[in-house]
């Protein structure tokens, strides 16, 4: 939507941190994506941002992206981009939620129902 001569959008903080990308490179990363450090011993490059370092540390064990964002007091939109880079670089492993196109299958829904009914 950029007309000639138009200025780029105002750079908000998260836009800068995410190196100018407004969206994560993988659309499989969402609020309910489960993240865990792929190999806790594997060092991040020295160029890693504070947010990258903090996210890998937070994901020492399994956690959703939303939880990691909340514990780190970072916006979800930012953490999506950072997490997606770290998955690409092999520092984080992602267990994704339901792919948007497929939708939940009845077996999964049955398991969810059974789980909720146990809470009655």
């Amino acid at each position: 939507m950029t007309a000639p001569g138009e200025q780029p959008e105002r750079a908000v903080r998260s836009y800068v941190i995410t190196k100018g990308r407004a969206r994560p490179s993988r659309n499989t990363i969402n609020v309910d994506t489960l993240l865990v450090a792929a190999d806790p011993g594997r060092p991040l490059p020295v160029t890693a941002s504070r947010e990258e370092t903090a996210l890998v540390r937070m994901c020492a064990r399994l956690l959703s992206l939303a939880e990691a964002a909340a514990h780190l007091s970072l916006p979800v939109s930012l953490v999506k981009v950072v997490a997606s880079d770290l998955v690409d670089s092999g520092h984080l492993a992602a267990r994704s939620g339901i792919p948007e196109a497929a939708g939940p299958d009845t077996q999964l829904l049955q398991e969810v129902l059974d789980g909720l009914r146990r809470l009655r």
Partner: peptide, 17 residues
């Protein structure tokens, strides 16, 4: 405490409402 914030490692699938 932060010790119990994590999910059991057996969890493979997140669903949301």
């Amino acid at each position: 405490g932060s010790a119990d914030r994590y999910l059991p490692d057996t969890v493979q699938q997140a669903v949301k409402i």
